[in-house]
Design a protein around this nucleic acid. Structure first.
Lengths: 172, 172
DNA sequence: CTTTTTAATCAGGTCCCCCTGACTAAAATT
DNA sequence: AATTTTAGTCAGGGGGACCTGATTAAAAAG
């Protein structure tokens, strides 16, 4: 039988973590210690970048379907990314209706950098703590995947695959 | 000497957690299993609510200063919250330039609900895991507070106090 | 060889966060 | 009493995440 107080404590710390890390990023950004933009990893432009870094050369339609976005939204984000030189658009030669989106080198670096850097706040943790944290987060993430699967049984367990593959490649 | 691989693994899981929990919320919202709006806890209107739930009856100016926002932005958010019946505005009687912002009962509930609910994904963790997680997050959060303090030495360690006090009251 | 489907585009809109500039009303200073 | 500071307001703007509707160009199907 689980201890409710312990759950509450952990929940509080998790919320606190969300708030504090958000603020830390914001402050870093204001102080220009953070050179680039912060394309939110899982929204809009960031979503596109992530999908492409897992599967480059998709068409806009494919991106839209995969990311559960209207094609027009997808087009908008892609165009913004083109302006930032993170992706390129080129007409498909086999089907001239299609536009193929590809990461530029910069885009690839950007997407990778998002994932690859180890935040400073992990550096004071001991090896044992890191292991514990990893184990716990694995459990939590799996729970969340289940939640998502339950809620959207039909549509997008694509998401699960996308995220999992993306990160698994990087870390294992 | 810390193990870099372990750090990377943990970092990856943390990123994954961010992505997955974000998506889970999004999906819940789409499925209308989530009745209310999602006032992001640490941005815009959510920030205001949070500050007030720690210290009710602040003036707009005090809110702006404390939250590092332009007074006009603060006014915007406050007005939106008024429309949602989460806060009230009233002229101060002692200084008629000032507008005092107060949480309504609904606003107080909303702010509290944000914090008080234990996410389902914690329910499968054992007591030991919950304790570990809490301890680790405490360490991480403290690191982040230090980061913020270092970057903004003069201005707003108010933030730290705000968040910390708010959450500490709730959970300890 | 039409008709229909498909991939994209443009136009326009909603809501969010957040800022600067210009201006008013009330309090504090001189 | 006149000036300056302070708290707010309105107007306008920039950027972001999304969406629907209407239209075009190219491919697929009848």
């Amino acid at each position: 039988m689980p201890d409710l107080t312990k759950q509450k404590n952990a929940a509080g710390k998790l919320i606190e973590f969300g708030m504090v890390s958000h603020t830390a990023e914001e402050v870093a950004h204001r102080n220009h210690l953070d050179k680039e933009d912060h394309p939110l990893r899982f929204q809009g432009q960031g979503k596109i970048l992530l999908a492409l870094s897992q599967d480059d050369g998709l068409s806009q339609k494919e991106l839209a379907t995969r990311l559960n976005l209207a094609v027009q939204s997808t087009a908008e984000f892609v165009n913004k990314l083109v302006k930032k030189d993170l992706v390129t658009k080129e007409k498909s030669t086999t089907d001239r209706r299609k536009t193929i989106i590809r990461l530029t080198d910069l885009g690839r670096e950007t997407a990778a950098a998002e994932t690859a850097k180890v935040p400073a706040y992990l550096e004071t943790l001991t090896d044992a703590e890191l292991e514990q944290l990893t184990a716990i987060l694995t459990k939590i993430n799996n729970n969340l995947y289940d939640e998502i699967d339950t809620m959207t049984p039909t549509q997008s367990n694509k998401f699960k695959a996308t995220v999992a593959d993306h990160l698994r490649d990087w870390f294992l």
